[in-house]
Amino acid sequence: MSLAPSLFTSPILASATLLHIPDGFLNLVISLLCWLISLAVLAGAVRSTQRQFDERLAPLAGIMAAFIFAAQMINFPVAGGTSGHLVGATLAFIVLGPWLGMLAMTAVIASQAIIFQDGGLVVMGANILVMGIVPGVIGYGIYQMSRGRSRAVQLAATGVAAWISVMAAALVVALLLGASGTTSLSVAIPAMLGIHALIGLGEALITAAALSFVMQTRPTLVQDGAAVGQRRWVIAGTLVTLAVLLLAPLASASPDGLEWVAEQTGFLDTAQNAPYNILPDYTLPFLGETGVSTILAGLIGALLVVGVMFGLFRLLRRPRQAS
């Protein structure tokens, strides 16, 4: 059996592609904005890794990036013909630490774009933000809250972290597409969240199971590098979560706001025949009328809130310090 067909006919890539934005779907201003944010964060990562003067880091991060890529091939049937598999940001951040994990995820995303055209080149900044930085920081932040607690709590927190990280990534993709005028937010947000609630389940289960395996066989691996300076990652994770969460209802509540951005940024697209008017109605008949989208969105929103509450609860009730 050859790897290539199984890699491309399997649902692995098909489902992964929804987070890998191709070129042409984001407008240039949004693409550049994402590059700007990603580059600023990556510059911090590069500076921080170089400051550590650890010669081992380059081969370690490179091989672990290859591991994330290979691990994405390992899937398991969830339900109804879909299969769960790994995106990997949370796992990479936990095992390698946030900065190195970020660089490894960047390498994964860059290689997928360069070698397999899975994700565009000019929009790569957006893909790094969506699949590397946002889910990693959120997942790692939530995971950090559970440090020093029992193994079961840590694993549960890891699962929740991984699920929320994928949902956040999906949400950001929807927002970027909406802001680019490529899709209508009222459809994109519930659709993306709905699909990724399931994909995120695979992410959550595999991440937690993989971590549990490592905790059993090589406990020192996940206990090293604990404690100092991790609190700021908890804060960073919480802030990014809140930012993403606040953006979403804001955007859905006043889609005109984002459409306005799209229009303003659309100045580059000179030949937009129809100028934007007040949109007649932002709901789509086949989803909006049946109320499915509303219910789905509400459900997912509620789950998200529960997750964040869980995280905040952990953050606030953290009396004893892990040592």
Binding site: M64, F67, A70, A71, I74, N75, F76, G84, H85, L86, L91, V95, G202, L205, I206, T207, A208, A209, A210, L211, S212, F213, V214, T217, R218
Partner: peptide, 13 residues
Amino acid sequence: ARVAGHMVGQLML
């Protein structure tokens, strides 16, 4: 999921 997760853990180690 546990089986898949253990495979991922194995591969990671």
